[in-house]
Amino acid sequence: MSGAIDRRIIFLLVLLALSTPLIMKYSIKPARMASADKFYAVIDKLQPRKGGVAFVALDFGPNTKAENLYQAQVTIEHLMRKRVPFAVFSLYVLAEPFLVSVPQEAANRLMAEFPGERWEYGKDWVNLGYFPGGFLTVQAIPKTNNLVEHFKKDARGNNLKDLPAFADARTLKDILFLGEFTGLTGMFDNYVQFFTSADYKPPFGHGCTSITIPEAYIYMDSGQLDGLLEGIAGAAWYSERLTQAFPARAKDSAEMVNTGLGVAHLVIIFLVVIGNVLAFRSGRSQAGSRA
C-alpha cells in the first residue's frame, strides 16, 4: 500500500512545505544552539590590537553555500562590528567569488545601518585569495616569522605592507581568531592538524554543513574547537544573537531559511510516520489474510 505512493507526490509535498515560508516571508525565532553561543562568545571577546588580525577561511563553493554562506556572513559581520581586522582566504578554488562578495556585502550592510561610519577594504579587511596546496599552505603559516612577507600581496595585487589591516601582522600569535567554513571532507582537518604551534593555537571557530555535524562535535568535545556553527540552524541562532545585541540590525535571510527547513523536517517526519503506519497495517492485513 505504502509502495503505491508516487515519489513525485512526496517531492511535491516537500517542495510546497519548503517554499511556503519563503513566499510568505515568514520566520520564527530559531532554537538556541549551545555551540553557536560559544562561537559568538569567542568573537565577542576579541579586542582589536596593533598587528592583530583574524583569519577567515571561506572553503566553500556554490555546492554548500546554502549553509556555509550564512555562517560566513554572520561571522564576518560580527568581526566588522567589533572592528577586528581580518583576512579572508580559501583553499577551495570555487570559493573565489565569495572572498570578494561576502565581506563587501557585510560592509555595505553595516554602512547602511551606521550612516556616519565606514568599513573599507585594506583598513578593515584584506582578501588573500585562493591558495592551492591544501595542508602545505596551512602548515607554512605557523612557521613564518613575518606574515606580511610570507603572503606578500593580496588578491588584488596590493602589497600587504601597504594595507593597515595586515601591515603589522607577524607571527601566528598575531592571529587573534581562526574561522573556517566548509562542507568538504578533509578540508577542516588541514586546520586542526597544522594551524597551531607548540605554544599557541588561535581560538578556532568552525562552520560545518549539516552532514558533518556529528563529526564536528568530536572536535568540540576534545576542545580542539572553541565554537561551532551547525548548518543553517547555527547561522540562524548566531543571527538572532546579533539582532539581540544590535536591535537596529536589518533582518537577514538565515532565520527565514531556517524556518523553511524546520517545516520540511516536519513534513519528512510526518511522511516517515505515515509510511511506517501504512506498512505496519499492510503487514498485519497480509498476515491476517494468510491465516
Binding site: K65, I232, S253
Partner: peptide
C-alpha cells in the same frame, strides 16, 4: 537536513 538546506537555497 543538509540536502533540504541546499533545496531551500535554490528555491529562495
Amino acid at each position: 537536513m543538509a540536502r533540504m538546506a541546499l533545496l531551500v537555497e535554490r528555491l529562495q
